[in-house]
Design a protein around this nucleic acid. Structure first.
Lengths: 307, 307
DNA sequence: ACTCCTTACGGAGCACGTAACTATA
DNA sequence: TATAGTTACGTGCTCCGTAAGGAGT
């Protein structure tokens, strides 16, 4: 058995069993990949792939199992070369963070500032996506880790580290009638057109269920993936906005009134997730700690709570 | 990076950094292993070994980490090979069980009988040892799994599957004065010379602490690793025996009187342990189930309880 | 003097590439 | 006919072994 062989195997599965494409991706020629598979099947004495004529169309049961283990092997070898890089590059390299717009824009800035000061040689990359994409990115090593609120907690292949809690606030134009109310309730919210996040984003799950548990149906007239879009349409007078509290910036959002809604909705927990067993370099671990300590700092109100 | 390279690395550590011996064990020549290490260190760009002159004497910090991951890589490749064998050999192969004398002699016989009937082509090997040795055997893949009562539960590298519960009984010659008592207590036990298992064996830990918790000191005049030895000396009149209940065989032990002591001591749990993530072949999993079901059978009293 | 590891070099094996062939849409 | 994979074969690379050299005990 050989590492290259296993790489071909896994890559082949990821390329929908297309041998030519796999070869190209691995900087090999087609017959080489074919040989890899043949050798592997011969060595294990079993068919790994289901074939239609000459074409590979799927994995056999044993194939599934083997691929599973092969992935682990490759993950561990990645860890090994990562350990090497760690020592060679010391405090330089790349940090790839997967996250959502809201986090990137309203939570991470102080963290990234501090991080850049501590590790000026580390290049930072922010990869944006929706929670499903973020999960994939973390799994496929497209990013070093993903920072996200929903879903991630449930994947058993991922280690999750809780970072902070947050909740929602209402934003509305100063003259909006809802601001006349002393206490804003779910019921009163449901009487006005609402602008908030799209499904699958930033705690939208709990948002919807909170209303339906109360037997109410919110009138969401517009939903967007990012807070800035929401604000824009609130300013247009399309409705009231319900956003993550940390996304309100007093200076720039003076024209919008803020009302805390943390009494109405459950608190959301934002976590960092990366594949189980992945080797984290010092600065990667440090970044996670930086998030937690930045959140804990009392000087900036943001609606965030440390966990 | 190459699997052979990693194998050399790990093997080198296991051979106390002796390159020559490692080479021999891997059916290579010395320079080959040297090259492996050099290549690896060059590829990772870091020292893995601490050197005294030309001699390797230890691992660097990064070396430790790398070895850790290398072990995982090799474990996973073993899994892959195993998956292959599974299909090729179908229901044949070898099953290597690590266990103690008591288990091998008094618990396993019906299990092994049933197993052999189900998988006549599988060769069974029973490797005996004390709990520490059993743990090592399981970790180093010297056995497929170990069956044991103590220690094993605490090693985070091992998966443990509970099999059954058991407790202790007293054995004594018919005319022994202790048998005149209606109820045998810890206190009365501590008045007579006792023969039981050696430390580290078969629940001896809880045995000792039970007495000391009651402020008593048992007079253990002889301790042995195996029940047959204990019985022998009980027959010699050296004292009363305290043994695992399942080790009493009514037919052969007619000359010894039995008294259940499960009210006095905590129940012990015997588990099967194997390295986390290890691939278990069908018949290996089946063997574990067989133990559990044999224990659950009502027709043979043995002092065992299913879990 | 012995053990242990490294360096240097040569050869054998094998994995990859090229090219021709086959099968499937 | 174009696309995809296998078979056949040659070559270049790489890895291992032999042999000689240094370093420490």
């Amino acid at each position: 058995m050989d590492l290259k062989t296993l790489r071909s195997l896994v890559s082949l599965v990821e390329n929908d069993f297309n041998v030519s494409r796999t070869a190209e991706q691995l900087f090999l020629v087609q017959p080489a990949v074919s040989q890899h598979i043949q050798r592997l099947e011969q060595e294990l004495g079993t068919q790994l792939f289901v074939r239609q004529g000459k074409r590979l169309v799927g994995l056999t049961d044993t194939g599934e199992t083997v691929v599973q283990y092969a992935r682990k092997v490759l993950a561990e070898t990645r860890n090994i070369i990562e350990v090497g890089r760690e020592h060679v590059e010391q405090a330089s390299g790349v940090l790839r963070i997967g996250t959502t717009h809201t986090q990137a824009r309203y939570v991470l800035p102080p963290v990234i500032k501090a991080f850049n000061k501590a590790y000026p040689k580390v290049e930072l990359q922010i990869h944006q996506g929706n929670p499903q994409q973020l999960e994939e990115m973390a799994m496929d090593d497209q990013v070093d880790f993903s920072m996200c609120t929903e879903v991630l907690g449930e994947n058993p292949q991922l280690t999750t580290v809780p970072c902070y809690q947050w909740n929602r606030s209402l934003i509305a134009l100063h003259d909006h009638p809802i601001l006349a109310q002393k206490k804003i309730s779910l019921k009163s919210l449901s009487q006005y057109p609402i602008i908030t996040y799209v499904l699958g984003f930033t705690g939208r799950g709990h948002f919807s269920s909170t209303f339906s548990n109360a037997g109410l149906k919110p009138r969401v007239v517009l939903s967007a993936a990012d807070t800035d879009v929401i604000k824009t349409y609130v300013r247009e007078g399309m409705g009231v906005g319900i956003i993550a509290s940390m996304a309100y910036t007093p200076k720039q959002d003076r024209d919008l009134e803020l009302r805390d809604l943390s009494k109405l909705f459950p608190w959301e927990i934002t976590v960092i997730a990366y594949p189980k067993g992945k080797y984290l370099r010092h600065y990667q671990q440090h970044f996670i700690e930086l998030i937690q300590s930045c959140v804990a700092e009392p000087n900036r109100w943001s609606g965030l709570l440390p966990i």
